[in-house]
Measured scan of single mutants.
Amino acid sequence: ADDEVAKLLVDAYRKNDEDKLEEVKKRYNISDEQVKRLIRKVL
């Protein structure tokens, strides 16, 4: 599931889509710190 979330985050990140990032964060209840970590893992 982590990889799936990471893909969604990276996708939103690449598109610079703040709304999507927020949506994913809320849906999976993850912190900014986790977001950064997941994005770093993929990029």
Rank of each mutant, 00 (worst) to 15 (best):
D32Y: 05
N29D: 07
K15Q: 13
L21T: 03
R40C: 15
V24D: 00
E4G: 07
E23S: 07
D19H: 12
K7F: 09
R40Q: 14
N16A: 09
L9N: 00
A6S: 10
L43T: 07
K15D: 14
K25A: 05
V5A: 06
V5C: 10
K36G: 09
R37K: 12
D17S: 04
D32A: 07
L9V: 09
I30F: 07
E23L: 07
R40L: 11
E33I: 06
K15P: 01
D17G: 03
K26S: 08
D19I: 13
K25H: 00
K41N: 12
V35L: 12
K20V: 10
E22F: 06
A6T: 12
E33R: 05
R27Q: 10
V42C: 11
E33N: 06
N29E: 07
V10G: 04
K7P: 02
A6C: 15
L21A: 03
K26I: 09
L8K: 06
D2L: 14
L8V: 06
D2F: 14
L9H: 00
L21S: 01
E33W: 04
R40T: 13
E22G: 06
R14F: 15
E18L: 15
S31M: 03
D11K: 03
Q34I: 09
A1K: 11
N16F: 07
D3R: 09
D2N: 11
R37S: 13
K26R: 13
N16M: 09
D2V: 10
I39K: 01
E22V: 07
L43F: 08
D19M: 12
A1M: 15
I30H: 00
N29I: 02
L38W: 02
K41A: 13
K20S: 09
V35A: 14
I30W: 08
E18C: 15
K25Y: 01
Y28I: 02
V10T: 08
L9F: 04
R37Q: 14
R37W: 05
V5K: 03
L21V: 07
K15N: 14
V10Q: 07
L9M: 02
R14G: 07
D3Y: 11
V24E: 00
V24A: 04
R14W: 14
N29T: 03
V35I: 09
A12K: 00
R14E: 14
K41F: 07
A1N: 13
S31H: 04
V42W: 14
D11N: 04
L9E: 00
D32G: 04
K25V: 03
E4Q: 09
D3K: 09
R40I: 12
N16P: 03
E23A: 10
K15E: 14
L8C: 07
K26T: 08
V5F: 07
Y13I: 14
Y13D: 02
L8S: 05
Y28C: 02
Y28N: 03
L38E: 03
K36Q: 13
Y13Q: 03
R27E: 07
I39H: 01
K25L: 03
D2Y: 13
E22D: 09
I39C: 03
D17R: 04
K15L: 11
N29C: 08
K25E: 00
D11E: 12
L9Y: 01
E23I: 07
E23Q: 10
A12Q: 01
L38D: 02
L8H: 05
K26Y: 05
E22W: 07
L43C: 13
D2M: 14
R14S: 12
Q34G: 06
K36A: 12
E4M: 12
D17T: 02
E33Y: 04
E22K: 10
E4S: 09
A6Q: 08
E22H: 08
L21W: 04
K7T: 08
L43D: 06
L8N: 03
Y13V: 10
V35M: 13
K25N: 00
I30L: 15
K15S: 14
V35H: 02
D17V: 03
L9W: 02
V24Y: 13
D11I: 03
K26L: 10
E4C: 11
V42R: 04
S31G: 05
V42I: 13
E4D: 11
Y13C: 09
D19K: 14
K20N: 05
L21H: 01
R27M: 12
K20W: 07
D11W: 02
R37H: 12
V35D: 01
R14A: 10
K7Y: 08
N29H: 08
D3G: 09
R37Y: 05
R40N: 14
R40P: 03
K41D: 12
I30Q: 01
D3P: 09
Y13S: 03
K20G: 11
Y28F: 12
A1F: 15
N16L: 06
V24S: 01
Y28L: 05
L43Q: 06
I30D: 00
Y28K: 01
K20P: 01
D32F: 04
R27F: 08
V10W: 14
E18V: 15
V5E: 02
D17N: 06
D19T: 12
E18H: 15
E23C: 06
R14K: 12
D11C: 10
K15F: 08
N29M: 08
L43W: 06
R40G: 13
A1H: 13
E23T: 06
L38S: 02
E4W: 14
D17W: 05
A6H: 07
R14C: 14
D3C: 15
N16I: 03
E18Q: 15
Q34D: 14
A1T: 13
E33D: 11
K26A: 10
D2I: 12
I39Q: 02
Q34H: 08
L9A: 02
D17H: 04
S31P: 05
A1G: 11
K41V: 08
K7G: 07
N29K: 08
V10C: 11
I30S: 00
V10E: 08
K20A: 15
E23M: 09
K26P: 00
E33S: 08
A12E: 02
Q34E: 15
L21Q: 02
N29V: 03
Q34S: 07
D11T: 03
E22N: 13
A1Q: 11
I39Y: 01
E18M: 15
R14Y: 14
A6K: 08
I39M: 06
